[in-house]
Simulated assay, not measured.
Amino acid sequence: MRVLLRTAVAQPPAAVMAGFTRALFLALAPPFPQLTLRRFDGCRRGDRVEIELNTLVKKLAWTSLITDDGVRPDGTHYFIDEGQTLPPPLRYWRHQHLIEPGPAGGSVIVDDLEYRTASPVLDRLLYPAMWAQFAWRKPIYRRWFK
Rank of each mutant, 00 (worst) to 15 (best):
D112Y: 05
Q34F: 09
P13K: 05
G102L: 12
L60W: 06
A14G: 09
R39H: 08
A135Y: 08
R124V: 10
E50M: 13
L56N: 08
P103H: 09
Y127E: 14
P13D: 05
I80D: 01
D69V: 01
L53E: 02
P139Q: 12
D68M: 04
P30M: 03
L126K: 05
I99A: 00
F20D: 04
A8T: 11
S64F: 01
Y141F: 15
I66L: 05
L56H: 07
S107G: 03
A61I: 10
V71L: 13
R72D: 13
G102A: 09
N54P: 00
A129Y: 13
T36D: 09
L90P: 03
L24M: 06
R142K: 14
T36P: 02
E100N: 09
I109M: 04
I109V: 14
K58E: 10
A61R: 14
V9N: 06
E114V: 12
S64C: 15
K58C: 05
P13S: 09
R44W: 12
A27G: 11
P120C: 00
L5E: 15
P73R: 03
R2S: 08
E82R: 05
V71A: 03
L122Q: 06
F20V: 08
A23Q: 15
D74Y: 06
Y141N: 02
R137F: 02
G105R: 04
K58G: 04
P101W: 00
D69E: 11
F25E: 01
K59E: 13
M130W: 03
L122R: 02
R38N: 12
R22S: 12
V121I: 13
L24P: 03
T67M: 06
R116Y: 00
V71G: 04
D81V: 06
P73V: 04
